[in-house]
Structures are given as structure tokens and as C-alpha cells.
Design a protein around this nucleic acid. Structure first.
Lengths: 146, 146
DNA sequence: TATTGTTATACTCTATAACTATA
DNA sequence: TATAGTTATAGAGTATAACAATA
């Protein structure tokens, strides 16, 4: 294995472990205990990309349509999303996030960012170390976006 | 807000988003489709730390004891862990990972690292960029370990 | 009495198969 | 015929409450 191939694999291992541990830790922070990861993921998608059909949501979250129907049922019962029949294609149902749903997403994001900021603050990271984390975040973003 | 406080929060937001997205992407890679995240987490803990009681596993994974009983039931049925009564304190049950269980963990880790290494390779990251990712991984590890 | 683990019960998320309504 | 969504059904993971066995 070449030197750069070895660096690639060592980096992958380090980053994989660090990523899973940090995600696990941050996932505990949420705005409502009743909100599951699956529901939160749908709300975050709707907030970012606007109204979506059940099929589009299912594809984006990589679950089946019946599974997404169930998740949207739960969100609708809690008043976090609203279904609207599509007038152009009446097989379709458009799903919109409500104000209450938006609040939940915003508050959950705020709590997670606050938790992470607290953890970073406690470690007294220097400006250079924070810049390293931000540069790495951008490199990680390019990995998932590619 | 001071300049460093602002840097702290910007870093937290960037890192939170990058971490969740990458974890979500890597979580798809596993050695067996029948293996759930909950089961895999227990196997990884047992492989790293050795035999553990149901209570210790429940506390480590931050779930209730009945929930851990159910997860261990599933792993035992598949032959990935074995229960042994504790002779010193007969209320307790020790859980050990089996050879088959170890293989599943090792193979899942291998696939995730390979997937991430492939993604990094495709982006033609420089040695400096890989070093940034490794340095960030260490900074992230200190966050979760603290 | 307190602790360890299990069983009972219920809710959510997941899947596949079958169904309805619409294109 | 094909597509969008739902319903039916089943299995796993989660929880709380109640229980048995043991310390």
C-alpha cells in the first residue's frame, strides 16, 4: 500500500469513529422527548426544502412509502405537519411543515449547537483548533455532497 | 457576543451539520442487513470492553433494562452473544460476544472504513487536507471523552 | 429492603404484500 | 398499465409497570 493510501485509510478510521461518537452524543439533545429521529429528520427536510410528497420524503430518507406514511401520520397527529391533496395530480399528497413543526426543529438545532458549543468551550480550544474543526466540517460536507 | 464566542458557535453549527450527515451516510454500510444499530452498538461495546451485565450494557447505551434484555435476546437468537449466569451474584447475567459476533463487528467496521476511504479518494484530498481531518477527529474525540 | 433481570403491555419505525384511487 | 398513497400484518426497539429471584 502506498504512503498516501495508508494515510487515506488511517484518516477514514479516525474520522469514522469520531463522527459516530459525536453524533451519538449530540442526538440526545432534542426539543421534545416525544420526537423520534425519524420524525425529526422529516421535519428538518421539510424546513430546508419546503413541501414534499410522501414519495419524495420516502426517497430522501431512504425508507419505503408505507413507512413514511406512518411517520407522517405521527407528525400530523402532533400538529407538526399538514397534508394537502395535490389538485394537479390527485393521487398525490403534499406535506407541509407547520409553525409548531418549525419551532421544534429550530429549538432542537439550537439545543444541539448550544450543547456542542458548551463542550468546545470547556476544552478551551484555541482559534487555530476551532479553525481546524471548521475546515474539517467543510471537507466532510464535500464527502456527503459528492 | 465576543469574537471567540461567535467563532465557537459558528464552529458548533458547522460541525454539528457535517457530523450528522456523515454519520447518516456511513450508517448504511453494515455486514448484515439483519443487524440493527442497537444490536451493533452492543456488539461493539462488548468487543471493546469485554463481558458486561445487562445493567451495565443498558447504562452504557442509555436505554432501560427491559429494552436491553430485548436487544440481547435478539443477538443471542442469532448467535452473536452468549448469556452466562454470574456465580458470585446469582441475580446477574454476564453477556459475552461470540466469534460470530466479533466477525460481524469487524466486517462492519471494515466496510464503513472502506466506504469512507473510497469517498475521500474520489475527492483527491491532499495530504494537508487529510491531516486536517485527522487533527479534527482527535479534537472531536476529546469532546466526547471529556 | 434494594438490586438484577424478566415478563406484560403499548407505541413507533421498519418492512412486504395487497388494496384503492388516479393518471 | 403504471403510479401515489394507504391499510394490513409482522418484527425490532423503545418505554413503564409489575414481578421473581437474589443480596
Amino acid at each position: 500500500m502506498s504512503a498516501s493510501e495508508e494515510a487515506l485509510h488511517l484518516t477514514a478510521t479516525d474520522l469514522r469513529m469520531a463522527t459516530f461518537r459525536l453524533a451519538r452524543r449530540l442526538r440526545c439533545a432534542r426539543a421534545a422527548d416525544s420526537m423520534s429521529d425519524a420524525q425529526l429528520a422529516v421535519l428538518a427536510t421539510l424546513r430546508m426544502h419546503g413541501r414534499r410528497t410522501i414519495s419524495a420524503l420516502a426517497e430522501h430518507e431512504r425508507v419505503t412509502a408505507p413507512s413514511m406514511t406512518s411517520t407522517v401520520d405521527g407528525l400530523e397527529k402532533q400538529g407538526f405537519v399538514a397534508r394537502t391533496p395535490d389538485e394537479e395530480d390527485r393521487r398525490r399528497v403534499q406535506v407541509d411543515i407547520t409553525e409548531a413543526g418549525t419551532e421544534i426543529v429550530v429549538e432542537t438545532i439550537r439545543r444541539r449547537d448550544e450543547l456542542l458549543a458548551d463542550m468546545l468551550r470547556e476544552l478551551d480550544y484555541t482559534e487555530v483548533e476551532l479553525e481546524t474543526l471548521r475546515a474539517a466540517s467543510e471537507l466532510m460536507r464535500r464527502v456527503t455532497d459528492r
